[in-house]
Design a protein around this nucleic acid. Structure first.
Lengths: 214, 214
DNA sequence: CACCGGTTGTTCAATATTGAACACTGGCGT
DNA sequence: ACGCCAGTGTTCAATATTGAACAACCGGTG
């Protein structure tokens, strides 16, 4: 399972919009242009949802909406807990060659509350510094490698430092209360006007259908 | 096939060591610690080799080495051409969220000659600048996105600029003739003393067995 | 010599990913 | 009323990935 970021993204997006169906998620992710940077094709959404449901992290409700059958998903307690674990670990994991989990987690930041976010980002800083120190001390054994490979290590250092500065800046903004998170009023304004309302009304209907025991 | 970097890596490493068997590649990649940063498990090596052979990019020779059967691979003309194409495109492709193809290609740099490397890196620079400009001009439509997402765009910019500076520096070193490439004398000293010699003698034997029409 | 454990070399079933294709709805022009 | 096309919602067969397990060999040790 290379795609820890797909799991994270799906779990998180379901939590943001639940109850929600696969197509709505697809559209939402497209509108964020997430498909471009994370690599999410329509197929992975549906199979991902099936897998998460099978693992008990999501509940699947087969609703009859008008004349149509729709598979609508909600998060379970286990799913929300798993999301938290994965989110923390995606933020804490430092790997300049696989930045996707980190970026995905940042995009899902508002699902957590301020203290957790702050603490986790601090841990990332510590991990970055530890990685940098370790890299430095390993410079010695690299003498056996050809020069262009040693050069790559410099690039990694540079990327890590760029990351570090950005995180420091982000923590600053958090402390100044600049970013809307879970527990604040108005935590996430849906991206654009129109489709948002559409989703909201579907959401209401799905809620009623589910509570109507089906 | 998300793993264009696996194809690139396998094709390239075969070209470096051919004729070579799967286990030797596995060991070589482990000794570079490539398995850590690219994500290469033993399994992918063998299935990757099979696929490349099926596509005519590698030749598979089923040799009898002493009492044992060994599957030994060499590159085909088509394979070497495909490698060049993939290498160029991995260097030219700018994506701060999937840096793996680029880093993989850099590690395989010595398989190309100086002019090609230089020209391709220049193209990357141009692409980086184009991406940065495009990003800047899109800042406007991002006003609909929540602030933490807009923030991510700044991180991307930073990562791209770090990349840029490193590439500029690399081109400088190339121009000063500092890096050993294809066409220079002594293009790649095998990483460490011992296993290198072992590989070399296997290589000689495999060469003889193959030319002995089997 | 019988056994052990490490290295060599590979296969395989379970799982994940891909993207194309399917099937249905609803509106709109004629 | 008809045909058409864009949107909605999902499935599926082909392919790729994973990592654990397999099997054979080699060199020592008791």
């Amino acid at each position: 399972m290379a795609a820890t970021e797909t799991r994270l993204l799906l779990l998180g997006t379901v939590m943001l919009f639940e109850p929600v169906n696969g197509y709505q998620l697809r559209r939402e992710l497209l509108s964020w242009e997430v498909d471009e940077w994370a690599h999410v094709n329509p197929g992975s959404i549906y199979s991902g949802l099936t897998t998460l449901a099978k693992q008990g992290l999501l509940d699947r409700h087969d609703l009859v909406d008008g004349t149509r059958e729709v598979a609508v998903y909600t998060s379970t307690k286990a799913g929300r807990e798993e999301f938290s674990r994965m989110w923390v670990s995606a933020i804490e994991q430092v790997d300049p060659l696989s930045p996707l989990p980190f970026h995905t987690a940042i995009a899902l930041m508002p699902l957590n509350d301020r203290e957790v976010v702050r603490a986790t980002l601090q841990t990332r800083l510590a991990r970055i510094d530890a990685t940098a120190r370790e890299q430095m001390s390993r410079k010695g054994d690299m003498s056996a490698f050809p020069p262009h490979v040693r050069s790559l290590a410099d690039l990694w250092m540079g990327l890590i430092q760029t990351d570090r500065e950005w995180v420091v800046n982000l923590i600053g903004r958090l402390d100044r209360g600049e970013l809307a998170l879970q527990g604040d009023e108005s935590s996430w304004a849906p991206p654009s006007g129109d489709p948002g309302w559409q989703m909201a009304s579907d959401r209401e209907r799905y809620l009623r259908l589910i509570s109507g025991r089906n």
